[in-house]
Amino acid sequence: MRKISFLLAVTLLSFVLICGYALAAGPYYEGKTVRIIVGYSPGGGYDSYARAIARHMGKHIPGNPSFIVENMPGAGSLISANHLYKVAKPDGLTVGHFNGGLFFAQVMGQQGIVFDARKFEYIGTVVTGGCVALLTKASGITSVDKWLSADRPMKMGGVVTGAYAPDNVTKILKSTLGLPIHLVSGYKGIAPVRLAAESGELQGTFGAWYGVRVSWRNVIESGEVNVVLQAVEKPFSDIPDVPLAINLVKTDEARQMIEAGVHKPALFAWPFVLPPGTPKELVMTMRNALEETIKDREFLAEAEKAKMGLDPIDGETLEKIVHGIFKTDPALLDKLKEIVLQ
């Protein structure tokens, strides 16, 4: 009996000591503030995801740091990406959320890029940028077969040369699949493209499914717009019957070009990253926290209400995918460059 109480006392004492020690040292993040730097203005997609994550991530990190979101808009989020690479301290307190299409742009040799995507630390991503082809009822195209045999090219909206969606996706699929397309680029985003499609000026566009299934829902449900093709590896779960672009390829080269230029960049379109040289244990903490956050019931309820799509990829996998595009066959890259930058 005495032995037991002795053991109990020792256990208790050591427990108290360990706890006390742990408390005295305190977790790294205790009392600290993590800043998520968003590369776009308030109110857009990147900003909404960052703010939703910021509201819930703190409680999944030991020490419960507070989170704030800062907007550093400019140059298609390149300013913030360069900032994260050059200026931000690798102390785990600054997180970047910018357009992952810039990683592909680095491979394509876009000017103004200072960072090396291979040196960022990847926390993960909560949604992907995979695209679908949207064509209006007025275009008369209801299926990809009809499209392939159309007698005139479809006028499809783009934003600017080098943008992943719609421009790169449109150009690569047009070139590899021989789809009759006349890309009209220069619209100020997907919303003006939709207005132009509704007014009959355009016949369609390629748009990221997780975005357009919300903002184009009315026209898709009413049948004003048809989803005829999806440009992803595996079909989206809510449109399983829409054919995959990759299944239409005739040559192996075309397949490789779609994989490198369309499928992979979609996966890292919305990354959360840390500056190069951030200590491994902090990277791991953040990765865990993001994984926990996207399982958080309150976060899920909020995402549900705001109809935010969730299609997460963990940090380790994301890192492999990004590093992968730098290992693409140079001859293939040259061909892609020719198509994308024309």
Partner: peptide, 18 residues
Amino acid sequence: FGIPTSVLMAILLGAFII
């Protein structure tokens, strides 16, 4: 239309979506 005509409206649109 869900098309913001100005920065202010872009943010209000964000509020719609929330």
